[in-house]
Amino acid sequence: MVNTNKVQLLQLPLAEVVEGLPSKSVKKIDKRILKHELVPEHRVLTLEEAAEVLGRLRVKPWQLPHISINDPVISLIGAKPGDIIEIKRKSPTAGETITYRVVVPY
């Protein structure tokens, strides 16, 4: 059953999570991947934009498709878990299409 509590973004004890888990050695990611033609444009939505998107789609944040915090693009654009990302990508049927994903800490 879908929980129908008031609309709220996910907040998490991330600092603690990172502290609690042994940190993986983070590899330096090459910034140039953002310019690669197969990497679509990612953008972190502002809180207002995110609220608008969630309201329009009538979903809770976790009902969006997920994207890992370990995703190279996510770490490069500095998104945090709970952030909502807008992705603009080419589509064979629609030309260009916009999708949203919520960043998850795993």
Binding site: L57, V59, W62, Q63, L64, P65, S91, T93, A94, T97, I98, T99, Y100
Partner: peptide
């Protein structure tokens, strides 16, 4: 849960 934002993207 959303699987696709628009069916077939178009």
């Amino acid at each position: 849960n959303i699987i696709q934002f628009k069916y077939g993207e178009d």
